[in-house]
Simulated scan of single mutants.
Amino acid sequence: MLRPVLPLLLLAVASPLWARDSLGVFGQWGAFAEPERQRCYAIATADESRARRDFQPYASVGTWPRRNVRSQVHFRLSRELAERANVRLAIGGARFDLIAGEGDAWATSASEDAAIVTAMRAAGRMSIRATDNRGNRFSDYYNLDGAATAIDAANVGCTRRE
């Protein structure tokens, strides 16, 4: 069963409506352009959970053509992280250790971004595991239905705006 895309759309329009252009909703993922910031991105919220959440978790894949940055992954985690927390992303059989901030995580390099996006294109689900600032392990889960199309739409959307 597909979950509603309303949380995704609410997340995407959290700032003023005129700041984002919708490039489409594809499965569980949406694609948006921010002409003012000269970036485009694909984004999805994590699966619903009854577990404690400090933040609304989401995954995004962003492109900034004028900075020559393409398909950079970013994860907003559901909880504030422990200091020096290990954050691990699992996509199919692939595992990636991520760089972590207080409640965010990123790939370690541009080549790791590319490997993560490649894995996302081939899998149906992904999960992120970490330890929160209270010492508890937690996981955020994502449906990857539509991720590849949304990533492509974001990349094409920014190419057309250059």
Rank of each mutant, 00 (worst) to 15 (best):
P7N: 13
P7Q: 07
P7S: 07
L8C: 01
L8K: 01
L8F: 01
L9V: 09
L9A: 07
L10Q: 15
L10G: 10
A12N: 10
A12E: 09
V13S: 13
V13G: 08
S15R: 09
S15Y: 11
S15P: 05
P16R: 11
P16Y: 15
L17F: 04
L17T: 05
W18K: 10
A19Q: 13
A19C: 13
D21Q: 05
D21W: 03
S22C: 03
L23S: 02
L23Y: 01
G24R: 03
V25G: 07
F26Y: 14
G27S: 00
W29D: 03
W29E: 03
W29Q: 05
W29A: 07
G30F: 02
A31L: 10
F32L: 08
A33H: 15
E34C: 03
E36H: 08
E36T: 06
R37D: 11
R39E: 06
C40H: 00
Y41Q: 00
A42F: 00
I43E: 09
A44W: 03
T45K: 10
A46M: 01
A46S: 04
R50G: 14
A51L: 10
A51P: 09
A51V: 14
R53V: 00
R53T: 04
D54N: 09
D54I: 04
D54L: 05
Q56R: 14
P57I: 07
Y58S: 08
Y58D: 07
S60L: 02
T63Q: 10
W64C: 02
P65G: 00
P65M: 00
R66N: 06
R67L: 13
R70Q: 15
S71P: 03
Q72A: 09
V73M: 14
V73Q: 05
H74V: 05
F75W: 13
F75L: 09
R76H: 07
L77Y: 06
R79T: 11
R79L: 09
R79W: 08
R79P: 06
L81E: 13
A82R: 06
A82I: 02
A82F: 05
E83D: 15
E83K: 15
E83S: 14
R84L: 13
R84Q: 12
V87M: 14
V87P: 10
R88L: 12
R88P: 09
R88I: 09
L89Q: 00
I91A: 03
I91W: 01
A94G: 08
A94H: 15
A94V: 07
F96Y: 10
L98W: 01
I99E: 04
G101F: 13
G101A: 13
G101H: 12
G103E: 01
D104I: 02
A105N: 14
A105K: 11
W106F: 11
W106G: 12
W106T: 12
A107T: 15
T108V: 02
T108L: 05
A110F: 12
E112G: 13
D113W: 13
A114S: 11
A115P: 00
A115C: 02
V117M: 14
V117K: 07
V117D: 11
T118A: 08
T118H: 15
A119Q: 02
M120L: 08
R121W: 12
R121Q: 15
A123Y: 07
G124Y: 15
G124C: 14
R125D: 03
M126V: 03
M126A: 07
S127P: 03
I128E: 13
I128V: 11
I128Y: 10
R129G: 08
T131Q: 11
T131G: 14
T131E: 10
D132P: 06
R134S: 08
G135V: 08
N136E: 04
N136R: 04
R137N: 09
F138W: 04
